[in-house]
């Protein structure tokens, strides 16, 4: 019996976690609802001045996306850790990092993807123009996978710790700063009529870096947590 390929592990992890998410779809909807409600609180509390709302819109949407991702990260490993599934995955015939990559992919499909779909709706609330919403969607498309990828590492590092949730927020949110800066920066550059390629390139570079590094780092952290 030889070790299966990385793609087999990725597909297995992805399919498994998507199936589990489908069974507990309430959790997916709660995260989406959180995103929508928090983003809606700002226009209500800041007031209806369109200039202020337009100014803060992209930033609010990015912060809400980051918080929604944080809220859903415990799903990625905690239950599998508690019920012993992670041990069985470690001993499976597929490479463990590839299974982890599949799980991270499933997390993005059930968290980042729905956020992107809803973001235009929220953008309209803040009076963002059609073009600005388009740029915002591109930055979210590049950036939300990084939220899940970096989030996976930190979720694995805090696995099994008491009070891991608060610690996760403390460790993770600072790492989201570059994403927020360049994600929002691209929208503002577009609004100011400047080139946004630089911002998008940085986001793309972060995505590539996270794609390469995160599954391996996450798998190593999970292994340590199980020991």
């Amino acid at each position: 019996m030889s070790e299966a390929g990385a793609w087999a592990g990725f597909a297995w992890g992805l399919r498994r976690d998507l199936k589990l998410s489908a069974r507990s779809s309430a959790e997916v909807l709660v995260v989406l609802g959180f995103f929508l409600i928090v983003a809606t609180l700002f226009p209500l509390s800041v007031g209806p001045d369109p200039r202020i709302l337009h100014r803060i819109g992209a930033g609010i949407i990015w912060v809400c996306a980051a918080l929604a991702c944080l809220l859903s990260l415990h799903r990625m490993f905690t239950l599998d850790y508690v019920d012993g599934s992670l041990e069985q995955m470690l001993l499976g015939h597929m490479p463990f990092p590839s299974i982890v990559a599949g799980k991270i992919g499933a997390h993005w499909l059930t968290t980042g993807c729905p956020l992107i779909v809803c973001a235009p709706l929220v953008g309209v609330q803040f009076g963002l123009s059609f073009g600005e919403i388009g740029v915002l969607l591109v930055t979210l498309l590049l950036g939300t996978p990084v939220l899940s990828l970096i989030g996976g590492i930190m979720a694995a590092l805090t696995l099994g710790l008491r009070g891991g949730g608060a610690l996760l927020a403390l460790l993770l949110l600072p790492l989201y700063i570059p994403l927020l800066v360049f994600g929002v920066g691209a929208v503002e550059a577009y609004a100011a009529g400047l080139g946004m390629e630089g911002h998008l390139s940085v986001l793309g570079a972060e995505l590539i870096l996270a794609l390469v590094g995160s599954p391996l780092a996450t798998a190593a952290a999970v292994r340590t947590a199980i020991d």
């Binding site: 030889s2 498994r16 012993g84 041990e87 069985q88 001993l91 015939h93």
Partner: peptide, 29 residues
């Protein structure tokens, strides 16, 4: 790890999935 099967205190079943689905996932692994 491909030589061995480990069955510990924590069985690694997913509560939300059916018996047949759990067995299929385990066999895939």
């Amino acid at each position: 790890r491909m030589q061995l099967t480990y069955a510990g205190h924590k069985p690694g079943h997913k509560d939300e999935l059916s018996v047949a689905e759990n067995l299929e996932l385990a066999c895939d692994l």
